[in-house]
Design a protein around this nucleic acid. Structure first.
Ligand code: SF4
Ligand code: SF4
Lengths: 143, 143
DNA sequence: GATAAATAAGATATAATTAGTCCACTATCC
DNA sequence: GGATAGTGGACTAATTATATCTTATTTATC
């Protein structure tokens, strides 16, 4: 009942990308150093994010990774889903699984409500929200 | 990001126990048959539930398993916690883990809110609620 | 007290998932 | 053409989940 390390890595990666001007490339090496993420593993994670359409990559000198869409269009739920697939807190909430009890099972319904409550929180915050707050804090500290 | 099979087994086991009069013993064998749970594995699960104080076991002839407290005092969250330990959707929400960013990390805070939203749903329903509904359905069908 | 019924405990086995590495390759910029 | 940076696939290691087996221990009942 926990997100995986890789998902954490993905979140922190996207946060790093959100901290630079939109469109600017960062190398996975830089991200891995700043965030303490195993470098080779991070490249794998970035590929998944790219496949999910959250980042774009560019090879070669001066290459790197950038956000595919502005940070205010990416929520925490998007990131989790990109790495782990559709979120389901119980097996019967995942696609193409059918428990015989599903039609009447009250537990199933409670799980669905619980999951929706969680998702609604995770969907309510975008990358921009997360880094905006940081910027405000910095500017307050400088006053 | 899913509860384990064992947790599902635990829920279904406690539901079975809630369906009989409070204090009545059921054998793990009976429960495993009714719910299609591997029998030997179920005994392990029952032991965990007993350790958590949700059920009481009795050995010997006419022995079995029963609820340790009435069904209206056991929520879904209790059961999940009993099997999986304190629920934490991210590593930094678990006890005795400290990420360097924890103090200021906005993501951490969002995760906490998301988790609380989920927990509040899972805590809002007791075993009694779940089987009461069943009984009402049965009586409606008999009308 | 013998016996059969029932769980307890612990070791062990198997499978699945997660985490991470290695290496040869391709694209890009200069 | 050389340096740089991501790609893709195979591979390994570690951890967790799932399950079984075996031997004890408890207890009602005859
Ligand atoms: S018993 Fe209910 S909660 Fe469990 S898997 Fe089936 S539908 Fe889902
Ligand atoms: S970076 Fe934030 S969300 Fe991630 S582990 Fe640390 S405190 Fe938690």
């Amino acid at each position: 009942m926990q997100i995986t390390r890789q998902t954490e890595y993905a979140i922190r990666t996207l946060l790093e990308l959100s901290r630079v001007p939109f469109g600017k490339l960062l190398q996975t090496r830089v991200i891995s150093e700043r965030q303490g993420i195993p470098e080779v593993f991070l490249t794998k994670t970035v590929q998944v994010l790219a496949l999910a359409g959250l980042v774009q990559t560019q090879r070669g000198t001066q290459g790197g990774v950038k956000l595919a869409v502005p940070g205010d269009q990416i929520t925490l739920a998007d990131i989790i889903t990109a790495i782990e697939g559709t979120l389901a807190i119980n097996i019967c909430l995942a696609e193409n699984y059918s428990c015989p009890n599903m039609a009447t099972c009250k537990v199933h319904q409670v799980f669905r409500r619980a999951q929706e409550a969680m998702l609604s929180e995770l969907n309510s915050v975008t990358l921009s929200d997360l880094v905006e707050t940081e910027k405000m804090q910095v500017s307050l500290e400088n006053e």
